[in-house]
């Protein structure tokens, strides 16, 4: 077995920082929403605002990183091998079949992941950011547009929040579907993934 580099230092920093920020956003957000008490309502509001800003800052930095390091190619959705990937998760995985796609520095995500992550990046995150900014700054319905209050922004923000929570649950579970239960998480920590034997010949980084 041989190790190969999958995640750069920046990507690992980005991932774990984002994880912490999203956790903070979810906990404070649902406290503000009235589901439980944890930090106290006022602290939650303050932390939700500050972690939202940190999240947006991180998003800007990571987008720049993606563009300059050419890593954005990982997020371009594709239907190639999509069917095989779905078949793998619904069938192959139980037979311990090999993964239908192989990972590399420029192909970190399988087609199903690409689709889901593209959905997050294009739909959920922008919607959360826009409705969140509306929440912070567009309090009053008179100018310049009559939004008749916070309701539309708040409800949309809540829908996005539930989708993020569902994503995270599935995402956390999916980390266990690597070639060992912990290999994906280890890769996100160390940056290196161990190659599966049968793909050895094909998975040389093409850079």
């Amino acid at each position: 077995m041989q190790k190969f580099k999958l995640y750069t230092r920046f990507e690992r920093f980005w991932h774990w920082t984002q994880m912490a920020l999203v956790m903070l956003l979810i906990l404070t957000g649902f406290e503000i929403h009235g589901n439980f008490s944890l930090f106290g309502f006022e602290n939650s509001v303050r932390l939700h605002n500050s972690s939202a800003w940190a999240f947006m800052g991180l998003a800007v930095v990571s987008i720049l990183f993606m563009l300059f390091s050419h890593q954005y190619v990982n997020f371009i959705p594709t239907t190639k091998k999509l069917k095989e990937q779905i078949q793998y998760y619904t069938l192959g995985i139980f037979r311990k079949d090999p993964h239908p796609t192989k990972k590399s520095l420029y192909n970190k995500l399988n087609p199903l992941q690409r689709l889901i992550y593209a959905g997050l990046l294009i739909l959920i995150f922008p919607v959360q950011i826009i409705t969140g900014l509306v929440y912070m700054y567009y309090h009053y319905p008179q100018n310049p547009l009559d939004a008749a209050g916070l309701k539309s922004a708040a409800v949309t923000h809540t829908i996005g929040a539930f989708m993020v929570v569902a994503f995270i649950l599935v995402h956390m579970y999916m980390t266990t579907t690597g070639h060992s239960v912990s290999s994906n998480i280890k890769a996100m920590i160390t940056g290196f993934e161990k190659e599966e034997e049968e793909h050895k010949a094909e998975t040389k980084p093409n850079a």
Binding site: F13, W16, A20, L21, L24, R46, S50, A54
Partner: peptide
Amino acid sequence: PALVIYLTVYFGL
């Protein structure tokens, strides 16, 4: 990441 969270919490509160 801990540093980012620390700063986020510090400036947030």
